[in-house]
Design a protein around this nucleic acid. Structure first.
Lengths: 388, 388
DNA sequence: GCGCGATGGGAGAGCGCTCTCCCGCTCCCC
DNA sequence: GGGGAGCGGGAGAGCGCTCTCCCATCGCGC
């Protein structure tokens, strides 16, 4: 036969088959390592693959296998968005989605962006808030590091409004991903149910507020809070207060419960507290309130590091030394804990490992080996640094 | 017409066509809004779509259109190495843009997660380092916010080793994405060229060290440094030093050059400097060095916020008040700038907008309207807060 | 009345891959 | 020597979609 005119696009199975003098099916078998193929033929196929520079076409494969080998990593926000969209203004300008995020983390530490935020919204967007917290970066890290050796990469999605949620679901329904990892910042997030209703497996970070037939990973928040309480007590603190997380999410509730229980058990039934929203600013405000009511306090447990950092700032501004006058303990062991002075003593939440486990659960599910709904609860540990 | 037995999978074009009593082609036309279709038929097709709950199958569409409507967001790291020594010379000079590299936070308390990746150490820490810096979160924010209204979502990829780079390229060659947005933390990153060689369009964040036929967005670093210098001078500082970024990346070089030039022009030819690597720890070390040699300095320009924060810590530990004794200016206007006390006066890099522009350039390119290689340079601005 | 362009719809050929059949061959046991 | 069983390979039917043809219809100018 004569040389084929080089086909325009990238080489296909057919091209490789021709080059190797075998059938398409055989090449496919070699490429996918399925069934026995004569070693000699295998080798010649491999050479043909190398010679042609063949790469399987993902869409074609996906079409027949009904798998994409992609998974979605969805950060899901506030539950409902009754307000009709501000869509007109928000859609087109770069960097703005018109998503005004919903809420509880609003304000946050980024307030200072406003002065010169020409294309409004970008700095205040849900997306921006999400990444302002070191937490989500760690989730991404854990997920990516688990997926990568397996040749998979996450598609990053955000769903903070009901409209965005619909878009996410419809995207998933198109068969763009085999499953979803959902990190909710909201207690009653309807997204997980929507996803599973659409027939896709999902795994959650953190226990949903209502029991569902969806696997999740979580932390033993109460144990973590207990570690913090015990450390403060062992340190000799006797006038201890806490800055809680938002009390409408399980993590906020559990950390408070665990702390309060341990304190009570140690004979300290009265626990001054101020509610924060996991943002530095809210931590500052909470600390200021606590200090006003209890000027003599000597220990503070903040339900996350970012609030603890805010608390330290306020304590210092009020002339208290950390840890000499007031001991401060955070929660998470995020990058914020080591970025401040003194570095934070904190309860470590192994976010990366938890995220990796989330990915593992999903992949197991996809592999079909395990259809069971499971939960994996991680144990926190205390990391002692300078602040307590 | 009898009821069809419900087909197992999700409804296809064929199903809709049957329900609407038209051909597949017509349904496709309506769904994609192409060519004229009789309004009456259009309506009945729409109803059929709604009734069947039809969603186009992405793989099938992708197979014929040769487009995936997905783009990759690649964070690319150090140029070369099968060697796992990332601590010595290579040192991940991050952030042609002020991105954080280094990651010395890692050692202390971060338990190595990543249980099941043999070569994982380097990769794991790279990913973690990347997100330890507020910078990358902002890039993601900008990109996501631009893509989302357009129904697209980024696939997140990392390429810090040559092996990872190959995997990224091969993934892209499979037709998994239509193009790539590349954020390099390394000056001589071979990845962009590899991607374009594979026939995919790419857009870079930050000017590559060698000129290439690839579009990019960047910041006028020198102008930003000039703003910082002018502000310090106007404030009355006379013994000014700078903590530079890594001097092997353009951003580090340009910020230094701009600062130095302005100082020289103002009659201050001698500029004490210490090189950092865009990490807080390196900023602390640099500040300590500067302070040792020039105990009387009254102004510091750090080439990014994270280093500025470190500098503030060291200054305070040496009994200097910020800004009363020493004024400090950062660069980036990242979340770190507002998270510290006093909040940082800093040069704002509009990362979100720049990232959005990057996405815009890529999408324009994909739309075919614009095959030209372009660059878009953003102007920085000064954000005055407490530190200077 | 005829031609002819414009309009709107259908038929059907793939896109590149996987996977089920099926067929020919060899081996081995009776 | 006959006949499974087992193995290795090929043929070919789609997966669900888009898009090029092609055809039927209609309006309209000459």
């Amino acid at each position: 036969m004569t040389e084929d005119p080089r086909p325009a696009g990238s080489p296909t199975l057919e091209d490789v088959a021709r080059a190797a003098g075998v059938s398409r099916a055989t090449v496919s078998r070699v490429v996918n390592g399925v069934r026995n193929v004569d070693p000699v033929i295998q080798e010649s196929v491999r050479q043909a693959v190398a010679a042609t520079g063949y790469t399987p076409n993902r869409a074609a494969r996906s079409l027949v296998t009904r798998r994409t080998d992609a998974i979605a990593l969805v950060v899901s926000g506030a539950g409902d968005d009754p307000t009709p969209e501000d869509e007109t203004g928000g859609a087109h300008p770069a960097g703005s989605t018109g998503g005004d995020g919903g809420g509880h983390h609003a304000g946050s530490t980024r307030g200072a962006h406003d002065p010169d935020e020409p294309d409004g919204g970008a700095g205040a967007s849900f997306t921006a808030q999400v990444f302002a917290d070191p937490f989500f970066g760690r989730v991404v890290t854990g997920v990516v590091n688990y997926l990568r050796p397996r040749g998979m990469y996450p598609v990053l999605m955000f769903a903070e409004t009901s409209r965005a949620r619909d878009e996410v679901v419809s995207y998933l329904r198109q068969g763009s991903a085999d499953g979803a990892l959902v990190v909710s910042t909201h207690a009653d997030d309807p997204l997980p149910a929507l996803i599973t209703d659409a027939g896709l497996p999902a795994v959650l970070y953190a226990r949903p507020s209502r029991p569902t037939r969806i696997s999740y990973v979580d932390l033993a928040h109460q144990d973590g809070a207990r570690l913090a309480a015990e450390h403060l007590l062992a340190r000799g603190c006797r006038r201890i207060a806490t800055i809680t997380g938002p009390l409408d999410v399980p993590a906020g509730q559990d950390r408070l419960a665990g702390f309060r229980d341990t304190m009570a058990r140690a004979g300290q039934p009265y626990l001054p507290l101020a509610e924060g929203r996991f943002t530095q600013e809210s931590g500052e405000a909470a600390m200021a309130r606590l200090l006003a009511e209890h000027p003599d306090l000597d220990g503070v447990f903040a339900a996350n590091d970012v609030m603890a950092v805010g608390a330290c700032h306020v304590l210092r501004e009020h002339g208290r030394r950390v840890p000499e006058d007031v001991a401060v303990i955070g929660f998470d062991d995020s990058s914020a804990a080591v970025a401040c002075r003194p570095p934070l003593t904190t309860v470590r939440q192994p976010v990366e490992e938890m995220a990796a486990e989330m990915a593992r659960l999903l992949l197991d599910r996809l592999a079909g080996s395990d259809r069971a709904v499971t939960s994996v609860i991680f144990e926190p540990s205390l990391v002692v640094r300078g602040s307590a």
